[in-house]
Amino acid sequence: MKTKSTIFCILLFFNCFSQKSETESEKSKRQNGLIVTYVKNCAEKYNYNFEMNEWQDCLNEGLKKDSTVAYFWQQKAMPYFKAKKYEVGMKYLDKAVLLDAQRWQPYRAFIKCIFQKSYNESIADFKDCINKWGNQYEMDHTYKFYIAICYLQLNNFNEAEFLLKEYIDNMLKKNGEEWVHPTALFYHGISLYEQKKYDEAISIFDKALKIYKNFSDVKIYKAVCMARLGKNNADVMNLLKEGKEDAKLGYSINEDNIIYETYPYQKKWRD
């Protein structure tokens, strides 16, 4: 592995040296042209689910022209993550981060959290991003939101509760109750549920259902909280039934990458 990394760094150095006379504007224009040629007009003509070799061949041709285009490395990585070949994809994504950390390090931290499920590594990556660039957004949520998800998965429920409450409070102050993300409310409720704060969890789950009335996962965990509190069994069973029916209709966690990965605490039902 060290030998391969050394070779990559040497090639990167000579590539940069040979292009040292370029201005940043000229470099950006040239690299954008390469992206159009080898991604838009080549790789994207293929379906990487069935034509992975052709997809990769296009990107490899682009890398022959310029191995410092971070987007080429990220595009090599992306379909492997969707195919659950995480270690294969990560070796390419690491190269994208080396070339353009501000753009691709948060994405790598997200992949480690939601796809690869390397929670401690994800936390370390996101914390480094926060130190460098502040608590920005990746895939519709803040870096601290994903840190909270990692904490949930590591059973650090109190830390998760704190970060999720902070995230929700910031959304409330900025845009109002209607713009609070139901996924954030769901996970905040989960952090309370895991600490046996069932009444508080139900209160948060109700807020999520006010925004997203068919949120199946929320209904299921709310029903569990109700059962823990000794609520009317018929009410509990009715809510569970609603949650199961909503889940079958696809009303679950509403995130773009849900088609590739099951999110933490998401419930899937089978007949």
Rank of each mutant, 00 (worst) to 15 (best):
Q75C: 11
T37E: 01
C9L: 15
S67C: 15
Y71H: 10
N49M: 10
C42I: 01
M78D: 15
F50Y: 12
V36G: 02
T6K: 14
F50R: 11
E44G: 03
F17D: 09
Q19M: 11
K65D: 06
A77E: 02
C42S: 06
N53C: 03
F81Y: 13
L63C: 08
F17G: 07
D57E: 12
I7Q: 10
C9M: 15
N15V: 02
Q19H: 13
I10K: 11
N41A: 01
D57H: 13
F14S: 13
K82W: 08
S67F: 09
Y80Q: 07
E24N: 14
E61P: 00
V69T: 05
A70R: 04
A77C: 07
E54T: 04
S21H: 13
E22T: 04
L12G: 13
A77Y: 02
N41W: 00
F13R: 10
A77D: 06
Q56K: 14
K82L: 07
K20I: 08
K20C: 08
D66L: 05
C58F: 00
E51W: 03
K29E: 14
Y71P: 00
N41V: 01
Q75F: 07
S25Y: 12
A77V: 06
A43I: 01
L34Q: 02
Y48F: 11
T23M: 05
L12M: 14
A43W: 02
L12P: 06
V39H: 03
I10G: 06
D57C: 07
A43M: 08
N47M: 07
M52T: 08
D57K: 14
W73E: 11
G33D: 06
F13G: 08
D57R: 11
C9F: 13
F72G: 03
F81C: 07
N15Q: 12
V36C: 00
K76F: 02
W73M: 09
E54P: 02
C58Q: 05
T68I: 03
W55A: 04
C9N: 15
K40S: 13
A83Y: 08
A77G: 10
S18P: 00
K84S: 14
F72T: 06
T68R: 09
K76M: 15
E61K: 15
L63W: 02
D57M: 12
K64S: 09
V69G: 05
E26S: 10
K27R: 15
K65V: 01
K76H: 07
A83F: 08
N47E: 10
T6C: 09
N60C: 09
I35E: 00
N41Q: 12
F17V: 09
G62M: 00
A70F: 04
R30H: 05
S28D: 14
Y46H: 11
W73L: 05
Q74G: 07
E22C: 06
A70C: 09
N15E: 13
E61R: 13
Y46E: 03
F72Y: 05
K40M: 04
